[in-house]
Design a protein around this nucleic acid. Structure first.
Lengths: 335, 335
DNA sequence: ATGAAAGCGCTAACAA
DNA sequence: TTGTTAGCGCTTTCAT
């Protein structure tokens, strides 16, 4: 690999002159510049990224950290962050936090291989985040409300979402509403559940313990939890799934059990993933403003990078997307 | 930001001793090591990634370069590459080639910010690839057959896929088969088209120019091309779409035009994206072995990184996934 | 306009 | 076992 030294030598100029020429500094004469550029071309020379970053102590790159790069749910988010990064002249790399403490993501955070990061990865602990973040290394976290120096949070109002979903079912006449939850330690899950409870209490409805099952936010979990619920004999008229994935699994279990959706049981999800529109029946769900929140996170990150003042945390409103998995109940015997 | 110098000073040892201790070298005494580690903890010290990479001239990281990080089609691929990287003790970062020559991806390739790369990005030219690749910087390209020093290719046999798709339609009794293509300059598109032609010729069937429209590999394009085809009056009994996205758009256009799928027109796609299973009717398509090809690409990359010998290019077989978008034609008047 | 030289933070060969 | 020191390849100040 050719270095700038080789280029300088070939061009017959000093190292620094070569450097100036290569970075397009105006103080080199056109002739010298051309000589240097020609030498670089001949040697197939390109700057060494690390050396540059080391010297500059800036990378012009931000990282987007996700639990699992392969999840399709983040499409919109990635797109929005990418747009913002691009328009600020920054590069974006995505890295996975799979592997926890030893993951690429944590390495990037700790070793400051980028200028800042947007994090959406449950398995990165608050401690790591708080430790890595500083005013010179801002981090935006999108899956919890943790804040600190250089660490701010952008979240979607999951409580409101849970409330809206449940309230919608109640308004449609449902009185017996089950909740299939995600992982117990998940922030998203707990706020959605809080919203569910608020709507239930407000309507004077009771949550039945037997209808509160966990599906771990995955399709298979929703399927199993639903099977289990169905086997218990008492069937709710509607089920609020903590996310769409579980709802899709749940619908499958219902159909296999001979229940039609929404004829026998109504279903509502959360997230509005791409698939929600395509499953049968199309899923009524709470739409997450992924593009907006990603965009906001990106903008905030750049504001912090420019030493501007911003709030500690932001909470975005959510809306319900009506499709066909919920039916109006005309009359039901109150339990 | 604390440096190793600060740590050494605080621990009262030499710089190198601190370095050794921090990298867990065995030649430091347990006591000294503990002192250094304690000092590091106190200063909240972490190694500077660039300095390390610069010195080592190795990053222990590979890059996966995609046109658009937000596309959901690459899920399987990303997962497989991630698995291989992880099991080889390497880190993986994904970066986008959006922005072409000025993109993050190109920067990473040129400036050697990683140890090697897997590329699936049409907008990265052969020239860039050939220039960046070398025996010390291997690149695996997955969307074309280009090879060179340090550059090898892993592709799916698109010609065979095109042939199988078309042949399947012919076997089902179809005689008038349209082809909706992707971008003219796309390698994938051209080989799929070649396969289509081979099957057609083999069966003594003719390709009609008016049925060869382009949809640019996107949903909207498939929709428009199909509308146009429908307006021309003569309707084929089956359409082979260059990819699933276009097929999904096409089905929509057909339904809007009053044609039922597969009742009036049969449809076959290519890729087997996640959605294919969920659209109505579920799409019969050519399944791309994404996981396998990603896994192969990953393994090859690591073999190259270890100076092992491998072939120049690999071509994977494809299989047809039968769903419900193709109907058997009992009899049809030959044209 | 050009060149010499001082580091950025780290590793590793060498000396002690 | 520990310390001294020479770079990795680059940018940038200062002198020319």
């Amino acid at each position: 690999m050719a270095t700038i030294k080789d280029v300088a030598k070939l061009a017959g100029v000093a190292l620094s002159t070569a450097s100036y020429a290569l970075s397009g500094d105006s103080k080199v004469s056109a002739k010298t510049k051309e000589k240097v550029l020609e030498a670089a071309r001949q040697l197939n020379y390109y700057k060494n990224g690390f050396a540059m970053d080391l010297k500059r102590s800036r990378t012009n790159t931000i990282a987007l950290i996700l639990t699992d790069l392969s999840g399709p749910y983040y499409s919109e988010l990635i797109r929005s962050v990418q747009d913002v990064a691009l328009s600020n002249g920054y590069d974006l790399v995505a890295c996975s936090s799979m592997g926890g403490k030893g993951s690429t993501a944590v390495k990037y955070l700790r070793e400051k291989r980028v200028d800042g990061a947007i994090v959406l990865a449950q398995n990165i602990t608050d401690e790591i985040l708080l430790n890595a973040a500083s005013s010179s290394f801002p981090i935006i976290v999108m899956d919890r409300l943790t804040t600190g120096e250089g660490l701010i949070s952008v979240v979607v109002d999951g409580e409101l979402g849970g409330y809206k979903a449940t309230r919608y079912l109640i308004d449609k006449g449902h009185r017996s509403i089950a909740f299939i939850s995600g992982p117990a330690n998940s922030y998203d899950n707990s706020v959605r559940y809080q919203g569910y409870l608020r709507a239930m209490h407000e309507a004077g409805l009771e949550e039945k313990a037997k209808w509160r099952l966990s599906g771990n936010f995955v399709r298979e979990g929703g399927y199993k939890a639903t099977k289990m619920m169905l086997m218990q004999g008492e069937i709710p008229s509607a089920v609020f799934y903590g996310n769409d994935e579980m709802a899709i699994g749940g619908i499958k279990a219902m159909e296999e059990g001979g229940y039609s959706v929404p004829g026998d049981i109504s279903v509502i999800g959360f997230d509005d993933i791409q698939l929600a529109e395509y499953v049968q029946p199309p899923l009524t769900t709470i739409h997450q403003p992924m593009y907006d929140s990603g965009s906001l996170a990106g903008h905030l990150l750049f504001q912090l990078l420019n030493d501007e003042q911003v709030n500690d945390s932001y909470k975005l409103k959510v809306e319900l997307t009506e499709r066909q998995s919920v039916q109006t109940v005309v009359s039901e015997i109150k339990s």
